[in-house]
Amino acid sequence: MITLTVNGKPHEVDADLDTPLLYVLRNDLALNGAKFGCGLGQCGACTVLVDGKPVFSCLVPLAALGRREVRTLEGLAADGKPAPVPAAFEAEQAAQCGYCIAGMIMRAQALLERNNRPTEAELRAHMAPNLCRCGTHMRILAAVRRAAVAMGGGVQP
């Protein structure tokens, strides 16, 4: 048994310590947000925040987490209020199949928490680790721009 802090709550988890966080989130904690896309750190479908930084949860073994705080898509909404980044994705209808979207939201969240006035080039460079095959890129970018405004900033041209 290992204790894990996910979305602000401690969880007791019965899993091998080398298990990548992704499998624990999905199977042991029944959280759907982080997705298995490649398991190789190449697509970002599994992106979650660990101590505020975006990481590929498919490559973070439980043993590495210690006391660090994990946040997933499910943890963004506070007190039932929709969080700005997911709300912006919904407003922009930024999804086709949507499989990549949870990871996109988490990576965008990490950027905007740190800097809600990134330039367009910074935004694109920041999102580069995450792949979308449906070609939803333009809407995803629009959604992050919208979220930046909602969070009191705005993406600079």
Partner: peptide, 14 residues
């Protein structure tokens, strides 16, 4: 042993 654990979860997949 810690290194082994981290390797198994993060590096071994490749």
């Amino acid at each position: 042993p810690e290194g082994a654990m981290l390797f198994a979860g993060a590096c071994a997949v490749c």
